[in-house]
Simulated assay, not measured.
Amino acid sequence: MTDIVAILLAGSRPGTDPLAKAAGVAIKPLAPVAGDPMINYPARALLSHPAIGKLLILTQTPDLLTANPATAWIAEHPKVMFERSGAGIASTLMTLLDRPGMTFPLLVTTADHVLLDRDMLDQFVAEAKGADLAVAMVERATLLARYPASRRTWLKFRDGWWSGANIFWFGGPQVRPVVALWREVEQDRKKGWKILSAFGPLVLLGALLRILPLRGGIARVGRRFGLTARLVAMARAEGCIDADKVEDVTLIERILSERGG
């Protein structure tokens, strides 16, 4: 299976990113982690995976990546194409979904997913395959068992506290209504109740009363749109550790050192 199109989100949010500012670089994907621009890590993981046939890099400023000696290799890779992204992630994805000739499935992840590796991709692809929509998340006990001091944004459900792992699966253009909803709540991604309420009162009530398991909630959301939707509960704690804050980079660099690179 080499027909998956991977999409690596490498754009900039409005305003100044603290990691980019601290590193003295123009955009966050160029901020160094263990001496290497962070985008290089997930790019290498995706390009080396046998299931990935093509990699699209979405960014508002492709020239900053192609002109940088440390990231120019990405543009030179035969599987890579750059796409200029718009104001928001979901809006850009909507454009891709509507593009004639676009091939599926799509696997979407982010440039700050520095710890992404072959094992995580193997699990996600195996469990997402065949679904219209899949979302990777990590349960709090999984993270705290390995990294008890790590702080994440959590959503509480009957089956635990969950944090996003920044890997998504779109099986085909039929996911367009979900991406359209994502576009509506994009600015509230850290406000869990607003996201849940957008998916309907039963899902919101189930989360608030702790009576709805996340796996069942995602499946129910999928059925609302006529889709097969799945939770991929990542086995690796590192799945939800992205380079979002200075303390995240410190932890990631320690993990990379323990891995040996």
Rank of each mutant, 00 (worst) to 15 (best):
V246C: 06
F199V: 03
A243Q: 08
L227C: 00
I167D: 07
D244T: 09
G172N: 08
F170S: 02
R176Y: 03
A180D: 14
L204I: 00
F168D: 01
A207W: 01
V203Y: 11
Q187D: 05
M234Y: 12
F168M: 08
P173Q: 08
D242T: 15
A180W: 07
F170E: 00
D244M: 04
A198S: 12
G222E: 02
Q187V: 09
A229N: 01
V221A: 12
V178P: 06
V249M: 05
L208A: 13
V179L: 06
V221R: 00
L202W: 10
R230N: 03
L212D: 00
Q174P: 02
L231R: 08
R223F: 00
V232E: 07
P177Q: 08
Q187C: 09
R215Y: 10
K190L: 15
K190S: 15
F225H: 06
M234L: 14
Q174M: 06
I167Y: 03
M234G: 11
V246G: 11
R176A: 02
D242N: 15
G216N: 11
F170D: 01
R189F: 13
L231N: 05
M234F: 10
F225N: 05
F225R: 00
L181R: 04
G222C: 04
R215T: 11
L208R: 11
L209P: 04
G206T: 01
A229C: 05
A198N: 06
S197W: 03
D244G: 09
V185N: 02
P201W: 15
A243C: 12
R220M: 15
L204T: 01
C240V: 07
A219L: 01
P177L: 09
V175L: 01
K194D: 00
G222T: 02
S197A: 10
E184D: 13
V185R: 04
K191V: 13
Q187T: 10
R176M: 00
E184A: 10
W169M: 06
P173Y: 04
K190R: 14
G192Q: 03
I167M: 15
V185F: 08
A180S: 14
L205P: 09
R210D: 13
R189I: 09
W182Y: 14
G171F: 05
G217M: 07
Q187N: 12
A229I: 03
G222H: 06
F168E: 01
A243Y: 11
R224S: 13
I218V: 14
E186I: 01
I195Y: 02
G200T: 11
R223G: 00
P201R: 15
A243W: 10
D242L: 15
V179W: 05
L214K: 11
M234A: 13
K194L: 09
G172F: 08
L196C: 12
G200F: 14
D188C: 06
G200M: 12
R230L: 09
I195F: 02
L204R: 04
